Simulated assay, not measured.
Amino acid sequence: MKRLIAHIKLMRPANVVTAIADIMAGFAASGMVVFWLENAEGGPTLFWLVMSTIGLYAGGVVFNDVFDAELDQIERPERPIPSGAASVFSAGTFGALLLAAGIFSAWMVSDTSLLLALFIAACALVYDGWGKHQAVLGPVNMGLCRGANLLLGVSAVPAVLTEVWYISLIPIVYISAITMISRGEVHGGDRSTLRWAGIMYGVIFISLILLAWVFSAAFWQVLPFLALLAYFIFPPLFRALRDPQPKHIGMAVKAGILSLIILDAALATAFAGWLYGLLVVLLFPVSRLVAKAFAVT
């Protein structure tokens, strides 16, 4: 049982919930939401895409710990692999199975979804083994994983991808900001880096308002979701700016990751209205509840 729990910890379950929100936001951008809500058309497609992102995201974060096994012996000995609760071999096998399941699930939707899943898996492995050690390319690498994950949701209707591909830039910028902040999780942060992350957050807010203006006559519906997002991500960031110690950096990172769901809810609202956005945001308390039992960072 301890080994089972250790491998579940490796998946970062609370984070996996945020990946599901990406799919739901992308599904809204694809235009399938109306058919799904009215007569359940597209339900199987949404199911397979959700299964795909669970496998891809969980597999990616499992391999993160596999690649960091030696470093974690020094910096984070409480993690499953350095603590001995899981081995590098068992974790690697588990991660490979998760990635394979994610790729297979995407294939059940379309060849386009399959190609996106392969791209996401490749980006995740590149980040785990190389990207996270790069000052500039690392955050972009991680952002690409989430941007492609959003497009995986859009691939419910492959033809729409060429029309709304640019929405993937929103999670790319957002995740790049979080990744920049996380650099100080162990040894403390740098105020200039935190300021740049705050500016990138601001760009996200402006982009979502403009997106809602273009795609929705009732663009104001996105504003409550943005207010909620600001409430959760900016206070921890400001605390980290005042005192960039690892504890405050970690809280800012955790808030940013979990608040991805609210970001996705705002994005979904821009395309499908506030009721669907509310459905997405209901994943937020689920993620926070799971985060009490399992580490987020």
Rank of each mutant, 00 (worst) to 15 (best):
W220Y: 13
A25N: 05
L97C: 15
K254P: 02
A28C: 03
V214L: 02
G129S: 07
L116V: 15
I178D: 05
W196D: 02
I261C: 02
S87W: 01
W107R: 15
I178W: 03
Q221I: 03
A14S: 15
F225L: 14
T269Y: 04
I170A: 09
G129M: 12
R288F: 04
V109W: 14
S90W: 01
M142L: 13
N15W: 01
V140Y: 00
G250P: 04
I204H: 09
G184Y: 05
T193A: 11
E78I: 11
F219T: 05
R12T: 06
Q73N: 09
S30M: 02
S192E: 10
V281K: 08
T193Q: 13
S192K: 11
I74K: 12
I249N: 04
R242G: 09
A124P: 00
V62L: 01
P244N: 01
A272N: 08
L229Q: 11
G189R: 02
A240D: 01
T297D: 11
P158Y: 10
A217I: 09
I175S: 09
Q245H: 04
I233A: 10
L115C: 06
A159V: 14
A217W: 00
V253A: 12
G31A: 13
D68Q: 08
V280E: 00
A40H: 03
S83V: 13
A197Q: 01
W213H: 14
D22S: 07
K254N: 06
A266Y: 12
V126A: 09
W165V: 04
K132V: 10
L151M: 13
M142H: 06
I172R: 00
F234G: 07
F219Q: 09
I172W: 00
A156Y: 00
I170V: 12
A122Y: 04
D243E: 12
R79E: 07
L115N: 07
S216D: 13
V290H: 02
G138W: 00
N39V: 02
R195C: 05
L151A: 06
A217T: 06
G188Y: 04
L260G: 15
G92F: 09
V280M: 04
H248V: 09
V140C: 08
S155W: 07
V164K: 03
V214C: 05
P139A: 14
V286I: 14
I170P: 01
M108S: 14
I20P: 00
A96C: 07
I206V: 14
I120D: 08
G147A: 08
V253S: 01
P13E: 08
T93E: 01
S83N: 13
M142D: 01
I257L: 15
I81E: 02
W36Q: 00
F215Q: 12
V17G: 09
D65F: 10
I233D: 05
L194F: 10
I23A: 02
P246R: 12
A69W: 01
I257Q: 10
A28I: 04
I74Y: 11
F47W: 14
F119Q: 00
Q73E: 15
A25D: 07
E185I: 12
F238T: 15
L37S: 00
